[in-house]
Design a binder for these strands. Structure first.
Length: 165
DNA sequence: GCCAACGTTGGC
DNA sequence: GCCAACGTTGGC
């Protein structure tokens, strides 16, 4: 019962949970793929940018909520929500020399790249990049600034503005 | 498919 | 540690 109550609130051990936006190319991995993965979720592999890595490794916590954003497609947009079900773990692809994500400078003892595991929560009515850019209330989101960041924080205020419910 | 903006690499 | 050259991202 207590667990149930905790899980329905916005807090975890007294710490307020955080909000994020993760980009993905839907041709490679879409929110529908995340949905199909079900309760076991999907490991968010292949992030190879240090700023994004630092967020994943140091700041993205269990139960944080994530806007799923489709990039490099016809209508770039926030398309839904995911939830973090496993905090940072070394990205195994960095050790696999047959993978595009292989990094010869990374070792098991000293991993360089990390990922978290997300579980599908729900689809949203898509919020296009054009809409976000046109919304004068949204000023802090890194997407506003032609950022190439693939993992970015979302303030609670802007999360609520984009996802009122 | 173009290309601007940005991140990374490596010679010096 | 600067910075030119190169590679990548991602909107358009």
């Amino acid at each position: 019962m207590i667990i149930f109550i905790l899980s329905t609130q916005n807090e975890q051990n007294g710490q307020h949970m955080a909000y994020w936006l993760f980009k993905t190319e839907p041709d490679t991995f879409s929110i529908d793929d995340l949905k199909v993965a079900g309760k076991q979720g999907t490991f968010w592999e292949g992030v190879r940018n240090y700023q994004a890595r630092n967020f994943l490794r140091d700041n993205v916590k269990l139960n944080d909520l994530v806007f799923i954003y489709h990039s490099s497609c016809k209508v770039p947009a926030i398309v839904g929500i995911g939830k973090v079900i496993t905090a940072a773990q070394p990205d195994p692809y960095q050790f696999n020399n047959k993978s595009d994500y292989f990094d010869s400078k990374a070792s098991i003892q000293n991993p360089r790249w990390y990922g978290v595991t997300l579980e599908y929560v729900k689809h949203l009515q898509p919020i296009s990049l054009a809409d976000i850019k046109a919304d004068p209330r949204i000023t802090e989101l890194a997407l506003k600034k032609a950022s190439r960041l693939s993992i970015m924080p979302v303030t609670e205020n802007e999360w609520q503005l984009l996802n009122p419910s």
